[in-house]
């Protein structure tokens, strides 16, 4: 464990909690892409299958359980509890355009052709594109509430911090996981456009982020 990875995990947890609290307190999931949240729940489910078979550390196990619980709770709030506030008419990104290439790639590029390893690789590739429906929804509506942009900021920051963690681990323990690194870089690149808007509009304007 290093400070970059710890900061990344905390940033990830903060993002998930920001979103969950926003939906719960406003009793509405307007402007939130349910599809992205389902994809994130799928990412955690396929990545943490070793939750009961491999024990890494208390921290690792606790964080996996927390991420799984909070992501499923978020999906539950969107599609069940506050479903009448869900903007399905704006959440129209075709997730099959993400799932098909990700499934194909995880069969092609993996460390071992075993179910657990392929599902882990699937979760890594899927996480890189899971935010697409949410970003697409924001471009479609042309705006995002500032709390939603803070969620996206911490979500994008988490994987950027993981990249720092991978650089650190390569130099200190000459460890590197190419699949995770390539996918993590792609994932962070997808956030760059949002980061630009976040720093130029939200942090300065202090209001909604309206797209040009």
């Amino acid at each position: 464990m290093n400070v970059f990875r710890l900061a990344g995990d905390v940033s990830h947890l903060v993002a998930i909690i920001i979103l969950l609290l926003k939906i719960w307190r406003s009793k509405s999931c307007a402007g939130i892409s349910g599809k992205s949240q389902v994809l994130f729940a799928l990412v955690f489910t396929t990545r943490y299958l070793d939750l009961f078979t491999v024990f890494i550390s208390v921290y690792n196990t606790v964080m996996k359980v927390v991420f799984l619980a909070l992501s499923y709770a978020t999906v539950y709030l969107i599609y069940m509890r506050f479903r009448n506030s869900y903007n399905s008419e704006n959440d129209t990104f075709r997730v099959e355009f993400l799932l098909v290439p990700v499934i194909g790639l995880s069969f092609l590029e993996n460390y071992a052709f075993t179910p657990l390893e392929i599902l882990w690789t699937f979760s890594i590739f899927l996480e890189a594109v899971a935010i697409m429906p949410q970003l697409f929804m924001i471009t479609k509506t042309g705006e995002a509430e500032s709390i939603t942009t803070h969620y996206l900021f911490f979500l994008g920051l988490y994987r950027a911090l993981y990249i720092a963690n991978w650089v650190w681990r390569y130099h200190t323990e000459s460890f590197y996981d190419l699949i995770a690194i390539v996918s993590g870089v792609v994932q962070t690149i997808f956030f760059c456009d949002f980061f630009y808007l976040y720093f130029t509009r939200v942090l300065r304007g202090r209001g909604k982020m309206t797209l040009p």
């Binding site: 990830h12 890494i56 550390s57 690792n60 993996n110 460390y111 882990w120």
Partner: peptide
């Protein structure tokens, strides 16, 4: 296939 890496990251 390269060797499977230890999965100690979240």
């Amino acid at each position: 296939d390269e060797e499977a890496k230890p999965k100690d990251e979240l």
